[in-house]
Design a protein around this nucleic acid. Sequence first.
DNA 1: GAGTGGTCTAGACCACGCG
DNA 2: GCGTGGTCTAGACCACTCA
Lengths: 253, 253
Amino acid sequence: MGTTQLEAVPEPKYWHLRTVLTEALDSEFAVGEILPNERDLAARFGVARATLRQALEQLELEGRLQRRRGVGTTVAPPRVGVAVGTEQHAWPGATGDVWQAVDCVLAVPPASVAAVLESAADAPVLTVRRSRVSHGQPVAAELLYVPEASVADLSGIDAPSGAARARAVLRELQRLELESQDSAVELGSARADDAKELDRLPGAPVLVVTTRFLADGRTAALSVATYRADTCRLTFGDAGGVEIHQDPERAAS
Amino acid sequence: MGTTQLEAVPEPKYWHLRTVLTEALDSEFAVGEILPNERDLAARFGVARATLRQALEQLELEGRLQRRRGVGTTVAPPRVGVAVGTEQHAWPGATGDVWQAVDCVLAVPPASVAAVLESAADAPVLTVRRSRVSHGQPVAAELLYVPEASVADLSGIDAPSGAARARAVLRELQRLELESQDSAVELGSARADDAKELDRLPGAPVLVVTTRFLADGRTAALSVATYRADTCRLTFGDAGGVEIHQDPERAAS
DNA sequence: GAGTGGTCTAGACCACGCG
DNA sequence: GCGTGGTCTAGACCACTCA
């Protein structure tokens, strides 16, 4: 006897909370609206604040919420689609490039980068920092590694570093003919410097897009671009990409 | 006066822990090795278990660790590259397809899917479940939505559902000529059913790849594929993709 | 049944944004 | 200075795996 199937599968509280909050967001809140603070919400649902925060973290990961210290928790707008396919993420420095050069230094790259560039582990390479803005918000920070062999002549540039030199490097890069490129996308967490540029805390989830540019039969440049995972949807291919958002617990049944 | 710059920037303990552990993983541990349990580790570093767990979560997100309840925490192998570019993630059912058909039912899709398919919100569509295995491990679960208009004739199939019917649907789909496709990648969290298929807990981070297949001037099929974010690196483009792993706190300096 | 990671609690203090 | 989210603690119990 007893209850039929009440709590037959005791799912975690935070997961149930996530579902409840998702439905509330869908029906009762508008984009940009401020939610009650965490202490109030926790009390309202009768859970500890840590448990509530676990649910909010999920929702932030899914791009449904935005939390800012000292401000509050707001309903996030739908993710913006950023093109990383053929056209927009093309040969760095090409016309129509969506990136903005920030800085350029000559530095020894991480070992993993050196391996791909087939350069000595301690050989310095030109390291260009660029940033990408979409809809007024910073969406990505990039480090572009360019072996000195890829740029013919930088003697006309007097600046040893800075945005001017970065643009000069990109200009020189354009003299090479791009043969092909390939990319990989994986999940990562923002390093301190990237986090700052993306207006997030260190460790924030990011989508790391690594692109290798091939010219003259070798790797002419390597781009490691860090996109905010909470606000971005990376689009590939012919058209603009698909607008789909995950539904809560909706399976084929 | 006082101390020069000791703790001038008090970074969070869990972040510092993450860095320390990353370096330890790089130098002192082999892939597959089992770490001390969380209680021991926390005691060794003089922090609460919750703080230690926060660091481990980061490392798991970055694909460095693998944690399994009842077993322990092990050092994860490098992420496997899975191709989602042109060839392998091509027209479903084409020869060389890496997917395995699991099931097929006729069901009403989520509203967001119906919108893309340009079908009525309550119109059922063929929903094919497929799974993808790489290196012996399940890496992705897919729901493929196929409007009935896309498949000419299923009358020869007596099974109302199941893997046999799924394969029949894919076979019929091949009769259409694929015009183009576009994809989008975004971060999500695994629904209960996907989590089970991917051998993870609900809410685990996943990379959601949404692909729209265009044929006959309309959307002939829509694929929503859920990849394990901890173990997968999605590769696009001409070659096999780049093998880069994020280095801890290594900036151009 | 012993040992593991997963969940949850009820507190405390800190860093930040804003008025 | 106040309210927010972010960090941290020291416990407890649960779910799972495996010998």
